[in-house]
Nucleic acid binder design. Structure first.
Lengths: 344, 344
DNA sequence: AACGTTCGGTTAATCGATTAAACACCAGAG
DNA sequence: CTCTGGTGTTTAATCGATTAACCGAACGTT
């Protein structure tokens, strides 16, 4: 049998569709007598009526649907938490999210935007899986919110992680443990990777705040995977004893994995001989390392929530200055005091 | 200015909306003169017309939209690839996917199903993030496809990984390297985790096929994280030398990480002293271990594609017997010959 | 000249809701 | 006995497309 329509409820209850609509939408409860309301509700229940949102959307011009465009969902472990945040807020307010993964392809992105606009989504979220500055794509509605990226012209509301502050927090954690010779194992030089520079700034400012002069030798780079972290750490460990770092802050958790491996090869224990702090709090990795890794979490869930709240108009957000979402430090067991009592 | 409607195109081109519709949908190209067609297209282009899919959907009773219900997207690294597969197929055929994460909550699931049905999705995919047998939820349309799970009554098309074959492949890999004493570090006993038993069956059958008698001592269990794998492996390594395994097949990659740690603590090198094979080919983990881990990949992307193809009717699939998607072995560097020349 | 056929469109119904405006009915006021 | 005002409900327009049915003109045939 076909799905019940409002007209079916109407005839079952012996009223007009207008009455059914008013009763079920709860709007004009005052105008309709309680008896009629009860009759309508009972009839709707009985024949299993469920409104057709397509028809409703056509009439009301709102679909209670939010479009979420993202690059490469597949290959990042971060997408999930961002999606989860957005999805939770959407659900809490009766919205549905239409997801499109553009695989970082400009043509697909164009199509996706067109398709979502055609579907009349009420708002749009433009997400990137790693913090970037992007040229605002054409065709995005005014109601678009940027997530984990910011439009180059800052023309729309956006939220990104507060990487600078995260870099400071990580470094401070090591300083607090007594370290003075702290290395920063950075990502390769790449303007796209804004996180790299910001975390470095945070690192430098933490050192400065503690009265430690930054040693340029301790700022090294490697590819952003375990092998890069390992190579960079190995280089660091060949430094003469008095210049060698007692602690390492890595650009991300995978590089920290590599740092662990390098330490192991060099016969060093983490954290007894070398303290390590990562970044990202990567699912199923950071906590599983031996010892579990102290790291800085990327606030993907929170950013996802925020973006959806703005998209839904639950929260005012002016374009111009992106919201910097705090990156909390996650303390585990990879940080300890330096091997020798600090210079103090 | 409001979005252009078909009527706007019609008046701009001096024709009726029927003509516009026919021209733009490409359907009745034969009936309309080439000149008129050109005029209509030009007008549509000029005023930037894009069809309103809500209106179209109401009329055609199809939304070109697929609902995808899943549990806990957030906390698993697998979701991405499954989504990517589904999304790719959808995009290739001009469909959009509406995603709902139920967070494994029955009430949310109910709401999600109702919402998607109300949105008139053309079909639905019911996904789980780890292989399970589930009671088919009420309210799912007939067109629902099950992804990485199967309805208890096998009443709908479904696809799950071929875990048994994967277990065989992993074990065979070790046998081929010359191992005879091969342990299986299993997940805790739990009927929900069907993968556990199936991989075990595969393991046993590979051993039997090679004429090796399975030693019950070599079937141990641990929690499905690194610490569980580590504890189980440590237990294995305390076995007397002649009963000790020379190779370990782990239920998943995280447990394999733990096996690495245990080996290291025991002064053993992987793979020189101990070979290890994992399962899952977990993103950003398996390949990053030192040495990179040989493992069995879960075909999430392929399952996602398959499910969407079935949902879109591009592929016939009868309910009854779930499609077993092959789990390819990913060879890296954690498998070598046993430390002593094989018994041969 | 009368009568099909094509050709090239147009008319109008329809999908299933929402909602402004109209209406029927009754009570109380003037 | 008419008028005014509520009250409770219905009528009908509307959202923006699709599509079956129809229609007028031109052309060919006998």
């Amino acid at each position: 049998m076909a799905r019940a329509r409002m007209a079916d409820v109407a005839s079952a209850a012996g009223v007009s569709t207008a009455t059914v609509s008013m009763v079920l939408s709860g709007a004009a409860s005052t105008r309709i007598s309680p008896e009629t309301q009860a009759r309508v509700r009972e009839a709707a229940e009985r024949i299993g009526y469920a409104p057709n949102s397509v028809a409703r959307s056509l009439r009301t011009q709102r679909t209670r649907t939010i479009g979420l465009i993202s690059d490469t969902i597949a290959t990042t472990p971060f997408a999930g938490r961002m999606l989860a945040g957005a999805n939770d807020v959407a659900r809490e307010h009766g919205y549905l999210v239409v997801l499109v993964d553009t695989d970082d392809d400009a043509e697909r992105e164009r199509q996706a935007i067109a398709a979502l606009v055609g579907q009349q989504v009420d708002a749009m979220i433009y997400a990137r899986m790693w913090h970037r500055v992007v040229p605002a794509p054409a065709g995005l509605p005014d109601s678009t919110v940027f997530l984990d990226c910011r439009p180059r012209d800052d023309s729309r509301p956006a939220t990104v992680p507060d990487e600078r502050d995260g870099g400071t927090a990580a470094t401070l954690e090591l300083i607090a443990a007594g370290h003075r010779r702290i290395a920063y194992v950075d990502a390769p030089e790449d303007n796209e990777v804004v996180a790299s520079g910001l975390r470095h700034e945070g690192y430098l400012s933490a050192l400065a705040g503690a009265g430690v002069t930054a040693d340029p030798l301790l700022h090294v780079r490697g590819t952003t995977d375990a092998s890069g972290g390992r190579a960079a750490t190995e280089a660091l460990l060949t430094l003469p004893a008095d210049r060698r770092p007692t602690a390492i802050f890595c650009f991300n958790d995978r590089m920290a994995m590599g740092a662990y491996a390098a330490a192991r090869r060099a016969g060093l224990e983490v954290p007894a001989d070398l303290s390590v702090v990562g970044y990202d709090d990567q699912q199923l990795v950071a906590a599983e390392l031996d010892p579990p890794l102290t790291t800085v979490a990327l606030p993907h869930y929170e950013m996802g929530r925020w973006a959806m709240e703005v998209a839904l108009g639950l929260r005012r957000a002016e374009a111009g200055v992106p919201l910097l979402m705090p990156c909390p430090i996650i303390r585990r067991d990879s940080v300890g005091p330096p091997p020798e009592p600090a210079s103090a």
